[in-house]
């Protein structure tokens, strides 16, 4: 399967994503520089990696949203292509309107790097199909602007919620003050969409940092395996 990892000025998890997809999951990866206008042909999934694009100046993810490659990504997403935005990638997806809402400064007003527990509240997506519903997983976080906020999010769009190690959704287990403890969401499908499932995921935690036991957790593996599995089922691999 063919992944496109997009590199913006200031992206700094692009190499991590490429490594995991190429060396851990043995998938084909193309790195796309922000100045390009097209994705490479037969791309199956676009990855917007974490980092500090344009130094987070103005607002996290906002300037990257004006990159030349963005229309091609929007077009790809609107046609049903899989898009995943991790951390800063999630912020960019909100900025360009592929996902609703915004990510505000953490409630603590401070950058936070830690490991958190998450509940997979929706496993009926191409990104989470191999997780059990309500499975509790542990993933690293590292962000200063992760407090998700939106006017309108349908319950079905919420994919990951911050929780404690027993799965309770509590204030204490919420590392950034995110609304409803939201850690990751997908797009909503309009009633007349021909798509069967959501195809765009944004999440603040870093699944690519939790795919090998030497790093302490393999809980992020199933996310990438779900994506790859979806494509196998669709007969595209």
């Amino acid at each position: 399967m063919k992944f496109a990892v997009v590199i913006f000025p200031g992206s700094n998890c692009d190499r991590d994503c490429t490594y995991v997809l190429k060396d851990v999951f043995k998938q084909e990866v193309v790195e796309i520089f922000h100045t390009e206008k097209e994705l490479s042909k037969e791309t199956d999934c676009v990855v917007l990696p974490g980092g500090f694009t344009y130094g987070d100046y103005l607002r996290a993810g906002s300037i990257a949203g004006f990159s030349k490659i963005i229309p091609a990504i929007k077009d790809f997403a609107n046609k049903g292509g899989l898009v995943i935005g991790i951390c800063n990638g999630f912020q960019i997806l909100c900025e360009i309107g592929l996902l609703p809402g915004a990510l505000a400064k953490n409630k603590s007003l401070s950058f936070v790097c830690d490991e958190v527990y998450l509940k997979v509240v929706n496993n009926k997506t191409p990104f989470t199909s191999l997780y059990k519903k309500d499975e509790i997983i542990r993933l690293p976080i590292a962000h200063g602007d992760g407090r998700y906020t939106a006017n309108n999010v349908d319950e079905s769009q919420i994919i990951f919620k911050y929780c404690d190690k027993d799965g309770n959704i509590t204030e204490d287990s919420n590392p950034n003050g995110s609304m409803l403890n939201i850690a990751g969401i997908t797009n909503s499908l309009s009633p007349n969409s021909y798509l069967l499932t959501s195809n765009i995921l944004g999440l603040m935690p870093h699944p690519e940092r939790a795919c090998e036991s030497i790093l302490g957790s393999k809980d992020g593996k199933k996310l990438f395996e779900s994506i790859i599995n979806t494509q196998v089922l669709a007969g595209k691999n």
Partner: peptide
């Protein structure tokens, strides 16, 4: 907690221990 200590996906022993330890990937 204010420092990203996991980016680059190499950190095996995180801050707080006797020494930090990173792996050098096979590739």
């Amino acid at each position: 907690r204010k420092y990203d200590h996991q980016v680059q996906t190499n950190t095996v022993i995180k801050p707080g221990g006797a020494a930090g330890l990173i792996r050098l990937k096979r590739c």
